[in-house]
């Protein structure tokens, strides 16, 4: 508990988490406002449509998580941390937990904020969360953000440089998974099992019974696992990456 408190103090006595939180909320909720404002009979506002911007918020949250760890390396406060807490596993796990919880909270505020602004702009549209799918599409965003933050922290521990770690995470998330689909024959088969596609499956999988058009919400995932299995898969990927990163940090010279 002490270490969690320490990492919380460290995180909130710097500015980047605040800015990233503001940016993540602005991007997601702003996008939802745009969707709600432009909705009409051809493109109706749905629960899924309010979450169109969740992937942009995800990117900002991963930048925040990556910065939280790499700035510690940049200013050598990681060394100061290891002097105060020589058990590097505990120190880094505490940091990961605090960053993941912040990412999760940002995700929930972003998702429910997006949903709320949809209701506000289009009071006539029924946006009630009735089905398990609709709950996942909104409340699930926080879980995905939290796990994605763990991925970013793990990469940050391994790479240690802000620019390197953040570009690696973003290029992978935004480009690599999408480009692998383009490989003939095997591409789509591999893509089904890629971690961020799995995260996407959790949020958009088993879509609402109305069988909405892809344009009326985030594009659907091609993963075949069930939504909760997909989230477990994504979390497992993050956990493996984190264990590798922490083992490396424990062995390496600080």
């Amino acid at each position: 508990m002490t270490l969690l408190a320490v990492e919380r103090m460290k995180l909130f006595t710097t500015r980047s988490p605040w800015w990233c939180t503001v940016a993540a909320l602005a991007v997601t909720i702003g996008f939802a406002a745009l969707m709600a404002g432009t909705a009409d009979a051809q493109a109706p506002l749905t629960v899924a449509a309010t979450q169109f911007g969740y992937n942009f918020g995800l990117v900002v949250v991963m930048v925040m998580a990556g910065l939280a760890i790499t700035t510690e390396y940049r200013f050598s406060t990681m060394r100061a941390t290891f002097l105060a807490v020589p058990n590097r596993w505990s120190a880094l796990l505490a940091k990961t937990a605090v960053v993941a919880v912040l990412a999760g909270i940002v995700g929930e505020i972003a998702a429910f904020g997006s949903w709320g602004i949809g209701k506000l702009i289009k009071p006539g549209v029924d946006l009630t969360l009735n089905t398990a799918y609709e709950w996942r599409a909104v409340a699930g965003v926080g879980l995905v953000y939290a796990v994605a933050a763990v991925v970013a922290v793990a990469v940050g521990v391994l790479v240690r440089h802000s620019a390197g770690a953040i570009s690696l995470v973003l290029i992978y998330n935004l480009l690599v998974e999408g480009l692998i689909v383009l490989i003939p024959n095997v591409g789509p088969k591999i893509h089904k099992w890629l971690p961020f596609n799995m995260a996407h499956q959790f949020v958009t999988g088993n879509p609402d019974p109305t069988g909405r058009d892809v344009n009326f919400g985030p594009p659907l995932s091609d993963a075949t696992l069930g939504p909760w299995a997909a989230l477990a898969y994504f979390a497992g990927f993050a956990a493996v990456l984190l264990v590798i990163a922490l083992a490396v940090a424990n062995r390496r010279d600080a």
Partner: peptide, 25 residues
């Protein structure tokens, strides 16, 4: 130990820096 005086986050105040060290100990 004082190995390098620059092992401080530049945007953190002196008090905030010492407070997290104190909390960790």
């Amino acid at each position: 130990a004082l190995l390098d005086a620059k092992w401080v986050h530049p945007n953190r105040s002196a008090r905030a820096h010492l407070r997290w060290l104190a909390a960790a100990s």
